[in-house]
Structures are given as structure tokens and as C-alpha cells.
Write a protein that binds this DNA or RNA. Structure first.
Length: 418
DNA sequence: TCTGGGGTCCTAGGACCC
DNA sequence: TCTGGGGTCCTAGGACCC
């Protein structure tokens, strides 16, 4: 049996932990640049605020309804996420951290019932302040469904256990197919065209038809719904096969030098992620685009990849090539809104073949990068940068409602006043 | 004025190898 | 006269997830 533990309105809940005055108030969290709504507290959902709505379209509505607005604070959410996962490991050593706000637990040897679910919920709530829902079932796909049911129906009090196929069919059969993990909008449309609307309809299909229309991925989902486990717990997080860093700018940029500063910052960031998982990259791609929402402005977007002479994890080398590509795809006279870098084709750091014609020295770069990483880990990212990253930051994001980093920055600690 | 930022897996088809 | 049977790698496109 598996348990799926999912945090309720995670980002909004994180903000509420340190703002008890907002406990019963509608709260929303915005995407980078204060662009769209990406999290809503239960009260905000009740007001009819949708996921992904552009903030500027709803500003007046938020003010009128006294909706509290936060800029995304991923440092805070990441830290609280780790604390939640830490509590979960006290229940079972088998844990797959599936995303920032949810984990699967393997329940070998544990009583898979609502009592366990409730004690997980209680422990996480007490130790972190984050409310969670728990779904327990024989397969991961069914645990996801059970979790959905626990969240949507008050009667379940945040925990739903589905032990038998009879229970599954009774509770989940009438639900629409798009609630199934692995069935998105496209498949839901395709299924609707074929007269399949509910989970019961889907389960009644011939397996061969599912395979033909939805490949082996769909078939796995189908079997999991029938109680046949096809997805195992992935306890070790596999290394990434690609790493991307990109941001929209707070305001449009047109000069090459401004774009170079932005890209160098993103490149340094992507390189740090690369070093953190002990990989080297040998293929990188740079992209650049104007604001697609501005119909009246001339539009341009382009991207290009470049193969490196030998694998590297050096910010300096990566940015040198990134800058070369940027110059190549940059065109004068456009208002750019976004750029980014994508690193691909990884190899392990300790298994490097040196390039015969490499123009940079691996050992020297390695030593330099190690030293830089040690310094920034200890004193923060602002302590040391490459000159290319600049100091102007003309690309910086809009973040007008950013909360403090209560748990990761000493000067942001809450004060208790007598 | 203002519209996010990451990832994964699978399949088909083409080019090439022996 | 007859023209097999195995592979790999790459790319593009389509689906999905948070």
C-alpha cells in the first residue's frame, strides 16, 4: 500500500504559517514578476479566483475583497517543504519526494488505514504548521485519487483510504476521467469523443484499445486503476537530464549588453545547479524572445544550440559559449521580455574525457568553481559573481509583495516582543 | 503598465552501421 | 533470378506532471 501526502494550497499555507493574522483570510501567491496567480488559500478559491489568472486583471477584485497578495518566495517554500518531508520520514523509511508539496510513502508493515493517515496529518500540522491531505491505496495512481477525494469532500476529514476495488469503484467510479493522474486535457478530450467520461467508463474499456490510443503510458495508468501496481517508489532522486534557467524581465530590454547581463546571471545559476548534481554539460542552448502578449509590437523569438569542445561544469566556460550564441541570435530593434539557457547532454563529473583541442583547462576551472561554491554557500550568492553578471540588474523581477525568509535568513527571524 | 518556470517519457521516421 | 536481419543515434512532435 502507498500513501500520498499532499500539502493543501502549499505556497499560500507557507505564507500563513508566519502570519497568523491571515489564518481565515483569502490569500494568493503570484508567479515570478507578480504575473499570475499560482496558489490560492481555501478562502481565495471560494471567492472564485482561478489558477493562472493574470494579477493585473484581478487587482481591483482583490482589493475589494481584501485578498492578501504575496510575491512568490521560493526560498521560504523550499525550506518548509524540506521540514514537511523530514516529518514524513519518521513514519516510513520508504519515501519518494514527488514534488515540492507532495510525497509518496511505502507502507510495508504499517497498518494502512485512516488512523495512520490522521496521525501523519496531525504530526505534520503540529511540527510545521502546514495542513496536508492523505490518500492511501494499493497503487500510486489510486493513492493520488484517494488524496483527491480526501481534499474535495469534507466528510473525509483530510484522509481517504481505499482498500478494496469495491471501495475504489464506489468512491471514484463517478469522478471525471481528467481527475486521473496521467490523463490531461488532450486525452480527456479524446476520451470524451469516444464516449468515455468517468473513471468507471475508462476502467471498462478494453486494455488493447487503451494501449493503441494512449501508448504504454496510458496502459500503465489503466492497470494501476485496476489495482495492478505498475509504478514503483522512486526513493533516490535521479539526476536531471536537462537543466534550464530562464526568467521574464521586470521590464522589456532592448540592448545587447542588458541581455548579456541577464543571460550571464541565468548561466551562472544553471551551472551551479549542474555542479550540485555532479554533472558536466556538453550541449547548451540559448533562447531569446519578445513579449508575445503585445500584438502591436514587432515580435521575434529564436534559439540556437551549440556543442562544447568537451564537457564542463564551469560557469565561465558555459557563459562564454552562451554569450557567443546570444550575439548570434540577437537582433537590434526589438523589445525583449525573456531569455534563458538550457544545458543538456550530461556526463558524470568524475568520468571526464579531456578534449584534445579544448581551449580551457579543466583542473584549473574545477578548482576555481569549487572555491566559488564554498564561498557562496557560506556567505550567500551576493558575495561573489562573475563580472559579466553585472551590477545594474536592469532585468530584475517585480516582487512588490515579498514576505521575509523567516527560516533561512538570520535578520528575517521573527521577534517575540514582551 | 501588468500574462511563470521548470521538468519527464514515448513514438515515429530518417539516416547510418555491420 | 533471388535482395535479410539486426542494430544505433538523432530529431520532432505529442502527451503528461508540478
Amino acid at each position: 500500500m502507498y500513501a500520498l501526502i499532499d500539502c493543501n494550497s502549499f505556497y499560500a499555507s507557507c505564507e500563513k504559517v508566519f502570519r497568523p493574522d491571515l489564518t481565515y483570510r483569502p490569500v494568493v501567491v503570484l508567479s515570478n514578476n507578480d504575473g499570475c496567480v499560482i496558489a490560492r488559500s481555501a478562502e481565495a478559491k471560494q471567492l472564485g479566483i482561478a489558477m493562472g489568472e493574470p494579477y493585473f486583471k484581478r487587482k481591483d477584485f482583490f482589493r475589494k475583497n481584501r485578498v492578501h497578495v504575496f510575491s512568490a518566495n521560493f526560498t521560504l517554500y523550499g525550506d518548509l517543504s524540506e521540514r514537511v518531508m523530514q516529518v514524513l520520514t519518521t513514519f516510513s523509511p520508504e519515501i519518494e519526494v514527488y514534488s515540492i508539496d507532495e510525497s509518496f510513502l511505502g507502507l510495508h508493515g504499517l497498518p494502512a488505514d485512516d488512523v495512520l493517515g490522521q496521525s501523519i496529518k496531525q504530526a505534520v500540522g503540529q511540527q510545521t504548521g502546514i495542513p496536508v491531505s492523505v490518500g492511501i491505496a494499493p497503487t500510486k495512481t489510486l493513492a493520488k485519487l484517494a488524496n483527491h477525494v480526501a481534499k474535495k469532500n469534507k466528510a473525509y476529514a483530510g484522509c481517504c483510504t481505499l482498500n478494496t476495488m469495491q471501495e475504489v469503484d464506489k468512491v471514484c467510479g463517478p469522478l471525471p476521467v481528467e481527475e486521473i493522474w496521467g490523463i490531461g486535457r488532450r486525452y480527456a478530450n479524446m476520451l470524451a469523443r469516444n464516449g468515455v467520461y468517468t473513471i468507471a467508463d475508462f476502467k471498462a474499456l478494453p486494455e488493447k484499445w487503451v494501449y493503441q490510443k494512449m501508448t504504454v503510458v496510458g496502459m500503465r495508468t489503466y492497470r494501476e486503476l485496476h489495482g495492478i501496481s505498475c509504478m514503483t517508489l522512486e526513493e533516490a532522486t535521479p539526476a536531471k537530464k536537462a537543466i534550464c534557467t530562464s526568467r521574464s524581465f521586470g521590464k522589456a530590454l532592448s540592448s545587447l549588453s542588458d541581455l548579456e547581463e541577464a543571460l550571464a546571471t541565468f548561466g551562472a545559476n544553471a551551472s551551479r545547479k549542474l555542479r550540485k548534481q555532479n554533472s558536466c554539460t556538453s550541449l547548451l542552448s540559448v533562447f531569446l524572445e519578445t513579449n508575445p502578449f503585445k500584438d502591436e509590437l514587432p515580435q521575434y523569438r529564436n534559439s540556437q544550440a551549440i556543442r562544447l569542445p568537451c564537457p564542463t561544469d564551469s560557469s565561465l566556460v558555459i557563459n562564454q559559449y552562451a554569450r557567443y550564441v546570444l550575439k548570434h541570435i540577437y537582433r537590434k530593434g526589438y523589445q525583449y521580455k525573456k531569455t534563458g539557457i538550457l544545458l543538456m547532454d550530461f556526463s558524470p563529473r568524475n568520468e571526464q574525457q579531456l578534449g584534445l583541442f579544448a581551449t580551457f583547462s579543466q583542473p584549473r576551472h574545477r578548482h576555481l568553481m569549487d572555491t566559488c561554491d564554498k564561498l557562496t554557500q557560506k556567505y550567500g550568492l551576493d558575495i561573489l559573481k562573475t563580472a559579466r553578471e553585472g551590477t545594474k540588474k536592469s532585468f530584475k523581477m517585480r516582487q512588490n509583495n515579498l514576505s521575509k525568509c523567516y527560516t533561512t535568513r538570520i535578520k528575517d527571524l521573527l521577534e517575540v516582543k514582551a
